[in-house]
């Protein structure tokens, strides 16, 4: 018995969401009286042993370069082998693109009940019940997993990272896996930037900013806060900002510690993508904007006047 966590990478480095997933796996292992282990696939620039800081006792590493390109079929095979070696009966993923691609396959391969988008530790007092986000963050479901092996994907920023001391034993594995059926032709990632889904602070702009030429309001505040930038659907539809910045029902769903919405009215479809944010700040000149009902802090005022003042205040208080 053990809890195995998939360690995911971005641009050759372990993702922050994997530190969170490892912390979560460690806590489940404690609950079940067993140990947490990790599986890392592909070349990495980081030291897998350092995952001991998040409670992992052992990390299986399949570092062959042929695994560096993502294929959920191949990755499922490698993880299934690690599951067999580690005797895992709980397998944890981050609820991100790679996690959501692999977990369903693994669930079928192991015939293990799957809960995606978990927001809390499982309740193991009577069976195995996992609370997950449903209706695009508007509710939660408590899902009972009936199988002895379970697969969970953890929502980003739902549990937090717990960093302590420790070093994990690194075990190299060379699984015998069928050839990939998918050929990766091109990978385009933003270098040196925090992906939006991993950002702790996000500054987002809407139609209220009137045009792409005014986006310095958003980017200046984001730069002062060390934040990522996002936008509403009309903004990406109009081509003011790239599609990957679009948050909302049809775009990316995010859950940063702080979400600052500038000139976004807060339609229900937009809220569906950001309502899991810990703190929401809304700046809008319309006091009736529905976003204020979902906000923690707000300023009713003209973004063109208010936002530069906020940026100045941030610089002053941080400087």
């Amino acid at each position: 018995m053990s809890v195995l966590v998939f360690i995911d990478q971005h641009d050759g480095h372990i993702k922050k969401s994997s530190f969170e997933a490892a912390s979560y796996a460690f806590k489940i292992a404690q609950q079940l009286g067993t140990q947490a282990e990790g599986i890392l696939i592909g070349k990495t620039n980081d030291d897998p042993a350092s995952l001991g800081k998040y409670g992992l006792k052992k990390v299986y590493v399949a570092s062959d370069d042929k695994y560096s390109q993502f294929d959920d079929g191949v990755y499922t095979g490698i993880i299934a082998e690690a599951v067999a070696q580690s005797g895992a009966n709980v397998i944890v993923f981050s609820n991100n693109f790679n996690g959501k691609a692999i977990a369903p396959r693994l669930s079928v391969r192991l015939k293990a009940g799957l809960v995606t988008g978990a927001v809390a530790l499982p309740d193991t007092s009577n069976g195995f019940v996992v609370k997950k986000s449903v209706f695009s963050g508007k509710a939660f479901a408590n899902v009972s997993v009936k199988t002895d092996t379970r697969v969970i994907t953890l929502n980003g920023n739902a549990y937090g990272v717990n960093e302590t001391e420790g070093s994990a034993e690194v075990v190299s594995i060379s699984p015998s896996i069928a050839e990939s059926k998918v050929r990766v032709k091109e990978v385009n990632v933003l270098k040196g930037e925090v992906p939006l889904s991993e950002a702790e602070i996000v500054v987002s702009g809407g139609r209220g900013l009137k045009g792409p030429e005014n986006w310095n309001l958003v980017t200046d505040l984001a730069a002062a806060l060390g934040a990522a930038t996002a936008c509403s659907r009309p903004v990406s539809d109009s081509g003011w900002r790239p599609h990957h910045e679009h948050v909302g029902q049809t775009g990316l769903a995010i859950a940063p510690n702080l979400y600052i919405a500038i000139g976004i009215s807060g339609a229900i479809q937009h809220l569906a993508g950001v309502n899991r944010s810990k703190v929401i700040v809304v700046i809008n000149k319309d006091p009736e904007a529905p976003f204020f009902k979902a906000a923690d802090y707000g300023i009713v005022g003209d973004a063109f006047e208010v936002v530069p003042k906020i940026t100045e205040a941030v610089k002053k208080l941080k400087g």
Partner: peptide, 19 residues
């Protein structure tokens, strides 16, 4: 393999603090 036991609604927001 799984079964929904129950649903919860998120705790309501405290209300916005305006500046």
């Amino acid at each position: 393999l799984t079964e929904i036991q129950s649903f919860d609604l998120p705790a309501p927001k405290q209300g916005v603090k305006l500046f």
